[in-house]
Design a protein around this nucleic acid. Structure first.
Lengths: 152, 152
DNA sequence: GCCAAAAGTTAGACAAGGCTAACAATCTGC
DNA sequence: GCAGATTGTTAGCCTTGTCTAACTTTTGGC
């Protein structure tokens, strides 16, 4: 379900040249990297809408730690990819697809975060590391993380 | 020690605008992303030298799953950044700094991999996920991973 | 020792994701 | 209801990381 979404978003990765497992792993990582930014934006937009009632570019810029023009350009790509809608000089909305992606990201983020804290990490470092790790965790690993976080 | 290396390699990230913790986290992730490719290359080069006696661009290309010109350009950047040396039409060598980085990366990779396997993941998925995760694990988290992997 | 194949390089294109500078629209306080 | 502050956009530049096409160098088989 969610993987379908991700694949739709991605431009196709030129198929692995050889049957080299390593090469495929790296290509997988490259694909993941292409989506990281979109995922971060969509997740943040959902959060802003939830907390503030709307997602304004200026707040996105502040939270992401980038400049306003960078946000504008990135939002253009997100709109092109069907994840958001927006009108000039107005705030941003998620499409159905964007909402689905945001939900999935939030879910993954939650699990990774709880897992790290359960492992004994302080909440601040956990938040920081979760931000980086969450995009590189397979379904299988996520399930193990969840099990660990929830064990009695 | 190793962090110093990483910082030397990086162009400076424009310092965090506000004192926003989230923004800093994202900026940290961006910095990490900038180094991922260099780390992957250096790690692979070290491995090739160890296993094959030398690191040839054609093998790097195969293992990384990219084309030869891509490798050439990337090696140019690595040389510029003082991680490797090379002569035209010859194979690649690591500098002292490159070797240090490779060693650190290998160490981190090992720990993440052993951790994931210990958690119950099959070795193949573990290898795949470790490739993505290893670049986003703080010292503190790495220590917890190591402890978990080594517990009796 | 030559010549074809393999390996390496160079040139040039393109998209993403950053930035600054300059301009346009909206909002707000009086 | 207008002026100044805030917010948003556009234009243009840069680097990274990918590609293909075309060329050069090295290597290896006979």
């Amino acid at each position: 379900m969610t993987n379908v979404d991700l694949q739709k978003i991605n431009a196709v990765e030129p198929e692995a040249r050889a049957g080299d497992a390593r090469a495929e792993a790296f290509q997988g990582v490259r694909v993941a990297r292409r989506n990281e930014l979109a995922e971060d934006y969509v997740e943040l937009i959902a959060e802003l809408i939830h907390n503030q009632g709307e997602a304004r570019p200026v707040d996105i810029a502040t939270k992401m730690g980038v400049t306003a023009p960078t946000v504008a350009k990135t939002l253009g790509r997100l709109a092109r990819d069907g994840l958001i809608t927006r009108a000039k000089y107005r705030s941003v909305f998620l499409t159905e697809e964007g909402r689905a992606l945001a939900k999935e990201c939030r879910h993954r983020h939650e699990i990774v975060l709880r897992f790290l804290i359960r492992l004994g990490l302080d909440p601040e470092t956990a938040e920081h590391d979760a931000e980086g790790i969450e995009h590189h965790v397979s379904e299988r690993t996520l399930a193990l993380f969840a099990a660990f976080a929830n064990r009695s």
